[in-house]
Design a protein around this nucleic acid. Structure first.
Length: 213
DNA sequence: CGGACGATTTAA
DNA sequence: TAAATCGTCCGT
């Protein structure tokens, strides 16, 4: 029996994403631009990402020094969420990519809220402009309500956090690449990808070691 | 077991 | 420009 149109397109979406995410890292990162990430009532269209090469000689990767309790999900199959806590207050989310054991992942750095703006604004009352709701990796997670509960979640099924392909393809001429934000090393690698001129893309900041006194 | 620090955000 | 704030990881 023929599957209903909605089921068939959901299958096609999952197939397309699975194929993208299990492939090479940089195309996977590029391909996540324009994808929609939904959690509850809020949906974000991804506008900025960064690639991290896991154990493959990338000093900025959380998996660079090998498997730990924190990064273990990175070593598993693609399509799961690697969520981490940083600066004592913020959550950030990656999509695991590549093959098992490789520990490659793509950090979701920014997005445009395309559904559930009311819920998003309720979560981030201090925000003035809608473009700032998910403008930054921790802001994106706050807007979507993502925290440790999303750690390890499978994103290509019909779970509470879902990833779907772009509504319309993202043309190559609208994509820009540059150095990653805030990382200590590997400043030469243009592994950050964003939509040129999009107002929801975060500001570039060089990593500054913090001085304690 | 101590301590340095981070793929950040916000306010001043 | 600096404070907020704590889990993680490494060195002792």
């Amino acid at each position: 029996m023929e599957p209903a149109p909605d089921d068939r397109s959901a299958d096609a979406d999952r197939e397309a994403l699975a194929s993208l995410l299990t492939g090479p890292l940089l195309p996977a990162a590029r391909g996540l631009l324009g994808c929609r990430l939904s959690a509850g009532e809020v949906t974000v269209r991804i506008t900025e990402v960064e690639a991290y090469a896991g154990t493959a000689g990338d000093p900025a990767s959380h998996a660079h020094r090998g498997r730990t309790a924190r990064n273990v999900v990175m070593f598993g199959p693609a399509g799961h969420a690697y969520v981490y806590f940083t600066y004592g207050m913020h959550w950030c989310m990656n999509v695991v990519t590549g093959i098992e054991g490789e520990a490659a992942a793509v950090l979701l750095r920014a997005g445009e809220v395309v559904e559930g703006v009311d819920t998003a604004r309720a979560r981030r009352p201090a925000v003035r402009r809608d473009v700032d709701l998910a403008r930054g990796p921790a802001r994106l997670c706050a807007t979507l309500g993502i925290d440790r509960a999303t750690y390890g979640a499978y994103l290509l099924g019909d779970g509470p956090v879902r990833l779907r392909p772009p509504v319309r393809p993202v043309p190559d001429e609208t994509v820009v690449a540059g150095p990653r934000v805030g990382v200590t090393g590997a400043h030469d690698l243009p592994w950050r990808f964003w939509l040129d001129g999009d107002p929801t893309v975060s500001a570039y900041r060089r990593h500054v070691p913090r001085v304690r006194r």
